[in-house]
Every structure is written in C-alpha cells, then in structure tokens.
Design a protein around this nucleic acid. Structure first.
Lengths: 152, 152
DNA sequence: TCAACAGATTAGAATTATTCCAAGAATGCA
DNA sequence: TGCATTCTTGGAATAATTCTAATCTGTTGA
C-alpha cells in the first residue's frame, strides 16, 4: 500500500531525455507527444501503425485521440524521428529506425523486419534522372513460408 | 458518312489474341475483361490505378462498374498478367510489366517509371529467413527535383 | 439450338484508413 | 500572470477498396 510512493523516479531520466529530444525537434513536449515518444523510442527499433500505437497508449493509460496519433506520427516523421515504410497499400507503418536500412516483409503475417544496410549492397544502380536527386533507395524483400510440397 | 463501315476488322486480330490470353489464364472472356485487357495490354507497359482504368474504360465507351475493375485487376494479378506495385500507401498501382524489374518513384508528381532489371544488381543480399522463400525483391528509388539552392 | 448452371457483373451499402474542422485546452514567453 | 501560439480533440468528411445480394452472361451438354 505504500510501496509505490515514487515509482516515477525510475523513469525520470528517460522522460527528461524525451522532453529534450522533442524540444530539439522543435516540438512542444506535450503530455501526448511525450507518451508516444516513450512508447516509440523506449525500447528496441519497431514498426507501428497509427491504430496500434493508439491502442498501446490507451492501454498505458494515456488519454489521446487517434487524430493526435496521426498528427504526431507525421510530425515525428517530418522531424526525422521516424521514417515511413510502405510495404502494403492501405496501411502506413512508421519505423523508429531512421538510419539507412531495408526490410523483410512477411507476406503471411504482415510482419516487417529490419535488414541492416550492411547486408544489402548494390553492384549496379541506374542513373538518377536529370534534374532529380535520390531521396531514398528502398529495398523490400517479400518472403513467404516455403512450400512443403514442391511442384514438379 | 460511309467511311467507317467495318472499322472493327482493323482490331479483330488483337481482340482475338486478347480472348485467347484470357482463356489461357482461365478467365471467361467477358465484354468487360476484354475491354480492360485491351486497354492494359494494347500499348506499352504502364502503371494504373483502378480509378484511372475505370475512367479510361468509360471514356472508351465501355460500360463497366468500378467494382468490376477492382475484381478484374485482382484476377489479372492472380493470373500473372499484372503485378501490383506498392510505392504509396493508400493507393494501389498495377503494372503491366510482369517481368523482373524495379521502379523510380517521383515524389513530386507521383509518377512511376520502370527500371530494367539489368540496371540493378546486388553485390550482397541477406540470407532468406528459415522456412521461407523469396517472393520478390522490390527496389524503389524515390527521387525528387534537385534543390536549386544548395544549403551549406 | 437452347436450357441450365456456374461464374461474372453491378449498384449501392459497408468498411477501413486517414484527414479535416472548428472549438476548447495547454504551453511558454513577456 | 496574461496572452498569443500551438495542440488536442470528437466527430464529420473523404478516399480507396471490399462486400452483398440480385441480376445477367458465357459455356456446355443434350
């Protein structure tokens, strides 16, 4: 009954870092943004949809509207804190890993898994179209469970 | 007033080929499917959305519902006549080029342009996850107009 | 030739993901 | 503290796509 008196001290530092990170990105550290940032950056790299993240925030007791989740994901993306991954039409994934890397996409489960940039190298790439520059080179390796029964 | 008597003979062969192609794919050569197939495969390789194709068919005088366009695009894809390209969440493109190749995606205009498979070569690719096989390796090179004013 | 059945088409409703909007809060500088 | 600015929000609006149930068409076998 008295053992949870000041649990917040455990996370106080992480929270302060989050606030700093938001400020550096030019975003006011509001209650909602802090909550989402902690969910997004508190653990290992991850890939989330707006709906998913909204669920997590709700479960964690943060009152936040879905519209705000969408707004925040886009703001974080614009600020370079997130990166949008397109692997499936009709659903947007946001990746907390903003470094150069690629993705496996599991067609059966819909899972997305990072591929380290070091594991993909190009021997040839086409010329960049005149007057343009490359914004990104995205590689998606789509995989599916191997057929047990081989067709012949 | 009498110079368009039997214009259909000009396209008769192409139409017959289309009918054959549909039959081989196990699809009944219906009026709608024939019309869409001719729009899709009548000219050079192209990338279309359902909405676009529906508009073209309507303009060409073919009465066809949007639902049928969606059905047909998916059936053609399942039959290997089309390939779906995912470059933008929220909008599906279908590519009449089903061979191995990749894409430029123009972020400003939304245009999609084929890159011949010969122009993309890998020096390294990660191992395929256990129990899985590769369905496809999709490379999307996202380009944007080059900044005139270089930041320093 | 044609009946009959499987397969195809359709209008419109339903669903899903996302964005828009206007109004009420929260934030942080002066 | 006092505001101006920026945020958040519920709910309506939009967009792409899928579903549904009724109707129609293509094909096949007698």
């Amino acid at each position: 009954m008295d053992m949870h008196e000041h649990v917040h001290t455990a996370d106080a530092q992480g929270r302060q870092d989050t606030v700093e990170r938001l400020k550096r990105a030019g975003l006011r550290p509001t209650r909602q943004r802090i909550a989402l940032a902690e969910l997004l950056f508190g653990t290992a790299d991850r890939h989330v949809t707006a709906e998913q993240l909204h669920g997590e925030a709700s479960n964690a007791g943060t009152r936040i509207s879905l519209a705000t989740v969408y707004n925040t994901l886009h703001q974080f993306t614009a600020a370079g804190l997130l990166r949008e991954v397109v692997v499936e039409s009709g659903r947007s994934y946001f990746d907390t890993n903003t470094g150069s890397h690629h993705h496996f996409y599991y067609e059966d489960s819909g899972d997305i898994v990072d591929i380290d940039a070091a594991n993909v190298a190009f021997a040839a790439l086409p010329e960049t179209p005149d007057g343009h520059e490359i914004a990104a080179v995205d590689v998606v390796i789509r995989v599916r469970p191997r057929d047990r029964i081989r067709r012949r």
